[in-house]
């Protein structure tokens, strides 16, 4: 791959993406159109996140990629390998060691710091899309702050189900202005959206970049009498015993037996390394040793 530029994209393209990122940071929650390039991986598989990461990476960076919270899912591996090859940068699975983290569908459990960047892969950036299919109309709704329809959706949920039936990609309002799709993270992660790190959202196929600068006020939409509730499976992690982390449910036998494990693999590993043991866990052995 030595024929390609550092981090694959040419410098002109990276500059164009950086301009979009700066604009996005200046208007938190606003979707900035950008001339997304065709990447050597399919649309819908993180091309937006990959382009944002490529525009942010420098040779001194340490890069981490997670998909569903895990470093070892196939698409995370594939993206990590892509940047190892095209940028030759250091990679890590340890959240605290990474200067740039690309994620799909999760926010790491460990709090991020001001010198870190979190890049999200976004499939559909438009929070109003499934209420209003036309892009022309939704852009107008954002510019005029016409968000009544968003609450109509939540109202309908409660009137039909007795509760807001949105479990992931739960819409938020940014700094009291733009309604934003936080990407398909579980609503459990929504409270973490107000954080110290820079958060960048890249949607390749839909050609949009948006951002949350550090410590931005991000509020999940709700009703006063039906407040937003972050939720997770009512269990502790069976490997590390954590009661505060988001859990994957795993089917372990033919009888349909279940166990619950941390979706954030690095969080689980670090807890086990510190000698926390869950109900079905074994004492920690450092696999990397």
């Amino acid at each position: 791959m030595s024929d390609y530029n550092f981090a694959y994209l040419d410098e002109q393209t990276k500059r164009m993406i950086r301009r979009a990122i700066l604009k996005a940071l200046a208007i938190p929650g606003y979707q900035v159109p950008f001339a997304s390039r065709e990447m050597p991986m399919p649309y819908g598989w993180g091309t937006g996140g990959v382009q944002v990461s490529a525009a942010c990476l420098t040779p001194g960076d340490t890069f981490k990629v997670i998909d569903q919270g895990a470093d070892d899912t196939t698409n995370a591996i594939s993206i990590r390998k892509f940047f190892e090859k095209t940028a030759g940068i250091a990679t890590t699975e340890e959240t605290a060691q990474a200067s740039l983290i690309q994620t799909r569908h999760r926010i790491p459990e460990a709090a991020l710091s001001e010198d870190q960047i979190l890049v999200y892969q976004v499939p559909i950036p438009e929070p109003l899309r499934f209420l209003e299919p036309s892009e022309v109309e939704t852009r107008k709704m954002h510019s005029l702050e016409e968000y009544g329809l968003m609450h109509v959706k939540l109202y309908e949920d409660i009137s039909q189900h007795g509760a807001i039936a949105t479990a992931y990609a739960y819409p938020v309002k940014v700094e009291g202005r733009y309604v934003m799709d936080p990407s398909p993270i579980p609503k459990f992660d929504n409270p973490k959206l107000s954080m110290a790190a820079i958060q960048l959202f890249g949607a390749g196929r839909e050609q949009r970049i948006y951002a949350l600068p550090p410590h931005t006020r991000v509020v999940s939409l709700d009703f006063e009498d039906h407040p937003f509730e972050p939720s997770k499976a009512d269990h502790d992690c069976d490997l590390c015993g954590a009661s505060d982390s988001y859990l994957d449910e795993v089917i372990v036998d033919d009888a349909g037996g279940r166990m619950f494990v941390c979706s954030d693999t690095d969080y689980c590993r670090s807890r086990r390394a510190a000698n926390h043991v869950g109900a079905q866990g074994a004492p920690y052995e450092d696999a990397r040793a």
Binding site: G44, G69, N75, Y168, I185
Partner: peptide
């Protein structure tokens, strides 16, 4: 664009599915 987005639904969606399962 179409085939990428169509085929991406075979990627892991454990997390979103788990949140729907709980709901």
């Amino acid at each position: 664009q179409a085939t990428g987005f169509l085929e991406h639904i075979k990627l892991p969606h454990y997390v979103d599915f788990q949140s729907e399962l709980e709901l």
